[in-house]
């Protein structure tokens, strides 16, 4: 039986040689966490099922630095590596794959030009193209968008881009379904309401998307303790859970979280 995956995410500032891993709280208060390839190797040794690198730099030097980071990492880490942030063209995707990435995640560029999803999946296979969706709850006028009944009332989910700085008016559920039909192999679904809060995943968002697409959904945003990961596996159809801060600052080891999940009856790789 397919196991649930636990995926550490490294937000990388690539404006310095070798890059550095940082984590912001709601995109403010940036904290330094370590060197990307070193952290990735540590998580691999601890039992990470996959590693995601997200480039949060704005500089132009980044493509080269990310290539270096992936090359270095793939010499030491033998689980799948996904790379996202700033993948705008098939050419960007190609340079990530050539450096050793197994998957790329696309967000802003795909919202602007959805064909990018088809281009990547046709060239590298569906599994290689992950759609990242950053979604935020919107209560009030849904204008015909897909509405979800939540504990706090009816809402819809709006896609944001540019790392949560701008909103699109696009319905996140409809977008996920469209991306699936365009060839995305997986959805990395982040709740902008929960990201960086340590309050747990947005279970209603996660389940709304995961029960409407056939491709795997990676839940993201809000993990503060292992119970949150257990909860998202027990209460939604998520295939994987992504977490950053709880691993970065030594609060939890990936392996300990997975042991906990296994004890509670979740099928994970130990």
């Amino acid at each position: 039986m397919l196991a649930k995956r636990v995926i550490p995410c490294l937000d990388c500032d690539l404006g310095v040689p070798g890059g550095r891993v940082v984590k912001g709280i709601e995109f403010k208060q940036i904290r330094y966490a370590g060197i990307p390839w070193e952290l990735a190797s540590r998580y691999y040794e601890e039992g990470a099922d996959e590693i995601v690198f997200l480039d949060i730099t704005a500089s132009h030097e980044r493509r080269h630095t990310m290539t270096e980071v992936i090359k270095k990492t793939s010499e030491h880490v033998f689980v799948p590596l996904a790379v996202g942030g700033g993948i705008r063209t098939l050419e960007d995707a190609r340079s990530a794959f050539n450096a050793g990435a197994d998957k790329v995640t696309v967000n802003t560029a795909a919202l602007r030009r959805p064909e990018l999803i088809s281009e990547i999946s046709e060239a590298y296979g569906n599994q290689a193209c992950v759609l990242a969706v950053d979604a935020k709850r919107k209560y009030g006028d849904d204008m015909g968008r897909e509405v979800v009944d939540t504990l706090k009332g009816k809402c819809w989910f709006e896609c944001s881009f540019f790392g949560g700085r701008e909103f699109t008016g696009i319905d996140a559920i409809a977008w996920a379904k469209k991306a699936e039909s365009l060839g995305a192999g997986e959805i990395l679904l982040t709740s902008m309401d929960r990201d960086g809060t340590y309050d747990g995943f947005d279970l209603e968002l996660t389940d709304a998307v995961a029960s409407r697409v056939k491709i795997p959904v990676i839940a993201s945003g809000g993990v503060g303790k292992p119970e949150h990961i257990l909860e998202v596996f027990q209460k939604t159809h998520a295939s994987a859970a992504l977490a950053a801060s709880i691993f970065h600052y030594g609060e939890w080891k990936v392996g300990d979280v997975k042991k906990y999940l296994a004890e509670k009856g979740t099928h994970v790789r130990l």
Binding site: A3, R5, Q127, G185, K214, I215, P216
Partner: peptide, 10 residues
């Protein structure tokens, strides 16, 4: 089942 099968299996 989910297709593609993507992930770890025993």
């Amino acid at each position: 089942v989910t297709v593609p099968q993507m992930g770890w299996n025993d």
